[in-house]
Amino acid sequence: MALSADEVRYIAKLARVALTDDEVARLGDQLSNILDNFQMLNEIDTEGVPPTAQSFALHNVARADATRPSFAPDEVLKNAPRREDDYIRVRGVLD
């Protein structure tokens, strides 16, 4: 199956990745190739086979609901690109 440029742009929008026109063209070809290779899965009978999300499923892992020491705001914000007081600054969402 071949992905159109519009489909590639739509997936890029969902993934929030800005692509150049070159990248859109290249990724269209490459992803189409890779998806073609996935078609072999359709030949495998999985009727009644449950899905596996994780190899050794553990259930209900719980811990005590107790407070623990946490990081100081100065440490947590050390890597923030834009900071104001004890907050991360972002561009306004609403005009």
């Binding site: 899965l41 359709n42 495998i44 999985t46 086979v49 449950p50 899905p51 596996t52 999300a53 190899s55």
Partner: peptide, 10 residues
Amino acid sequence: KAQRVRTLIK
């Protein structure tokens, strides 16, 4: 589908 085949492999 991939997760179901994963079960078969396992």
